[in-house]
Simulated scan of single mutants.
Amino acid sequence: MKTMVVGASKGLGKALIEGLGEAGDTLIGVSRSRPDQLNHKADVQVHWIEANLAEPAKAAQAIEASVAESGLDTLIYNLGIWEEFAFDPAYHFLADSDEQLEAIVTCNIT
């Protein structure tokens, strides 16, 4: 099985790369950079695509090129960014800049 995890450099995405797969499977991580430390299963091949999804057209080209020949069986889209102070008690949505909100929509949806 060939599985791609988008947003795989830390947190849940990294845990998916480290925990998924069986002998002979291939996992493909996608993030701005590959984590320094990955503890994936021994018989699982792991490949990495360094792509910044804040630049969706460029990222899509890199991702497509990497799987064009052999395809994918599963795609896990685990990407999301938040407002800079989203979890701060003083957070106020209407005070966010248009630029920040546009970047969030571009990255999370586009």
Rank of each mutant, 00 (worst) to 15 (best):
D43V: 00
D43T: 07
D43Y: 04
D43E: 14
D43N: 13
D43M: 07
V44H: 05
V44A: 05
V44K: 06
Q45M: 08
Q45A: 13
Q45V: 03
V46L: 12
H47W: 03
H47L: 14
H47T: 07
H47E: 13
H47R: 15
H47I: 01
W48L: 08
W48P: 10
W48D: 09
W48C: 12
W48Q: 06
W48T: 12
I49C: 08
I49R: 10
E50I: 09
E50V: 08
E50T: 11
E50W: 06
E50M: 05
E50C: 13
A51I: 05
N52I: 04
L53W: 02
L53K: 03
L53A: 00
A54T: 05
A54K: 08
E55N: 10
E55C: 00
P56M: 08
A57F: 10
A57E: 14
K58F: 02
K58I: 07
A59Q: 07
A59I: 07
A59L: 09
A59K: 07
A59R: 09
A60E: 08
A60L: 11
Q61K: 15
Q61T: 12
Q61P: 01
A62Y: 06
A62F: 06
A62R: 13
A62V: 06
A62W: 04
A62L: 15
A62I: 06
I63G: 05
I63K: 05
E64A: 12
E64D: 12
E64Y: 14
E64M: 10
E64K: 13
E64R: 14
A65L: 10
A65D: 15
A65I: 06
A65E: 14
A65R: 13
A65Q: 15
S66P: 04
S66A: 15
V67R: 10
A68G: 05
A68Y: 09
A68E: 13
E69D: 15
E69T: 14
E69I: 12
E69K: 15
S70D: 11
S70H: 13
S70M: 01
S70G: 04
S70L: 04
G71M: 08
G71C: 11
G71S: 10
D73R: 02
D73G: 09
D73K: 02
D73M: 01
D73A: 01
T74A: 08
T74D: 08
T74R: 14
T74V: 15
L75K: 02
I76R: 02
I76K: 01
I76D: 03
I76Q: 00
I76E: 02
I76Y: 02
I76A: 03
Y77D: 00
Y77M: 10
N78Y: 04
N78I: 07
N78V: 04
N78C: 14
N78P: 03
N78F: 01
L79I: 15
L79G: 03
G80N: 00
G80I: 01
I81N: 03
I81A: 03
I81K: 09
